[in-house]
């Protein structure tokens, strides 16, 4: 399956809070970032966790977030970042 996003794309993490086993941490939900790497495809952990095969595999990305966009009270300089591994189905494209 081909990757929907490319390095440099502006993306936003879906703001969704389903229960269950999810590898998208709470602190990036609804936050905007930039794709910094396309890692490859991996079985979906939300399915694997329940004994299912996790297919179709999902593309996994590095998404780089400015720390100041994650935490309104961030104390460090504006160039500080957090890089999180995010699966494609958690990302939506964002116009810049």
């Amino acid at each position: 399956m081909s990757a929907r996003f490319a390095v440099g794309d502006n993306v936003r993490v879906r703001e969704a809070y389903p229960p269950g086993h999810i590898r998208t941490p709470h602190f990036i939900r609804g936050k905007a970032g930039v794709v910094s790497a396309v890692i490859g495809t991996f079985a979906n952990p939300e399915e694997l966790a329940y004994g299912r095969p996790g297919t179709p595999k999902q593309t996994l990305y590095w998404v780089t977030f400015p720390q100041t966009g994650l935490w309104p009270d961030y104390a460090g300089p504006e160039h500080d970042t957090a890089v999180v591994d995010v699966f494609e189905h958690w990302l939506v494209g964002e116009q810049q």
Partner: peptide, 11 residues
């Protein structure tokens, strides 16, 4: 720049 990597997935 400080860059914090959160290893949430398969890496």
């Amino acid at each position: 720049e400080t860059r914090v990597h959160d290893s949430t997935a398969d890496l």
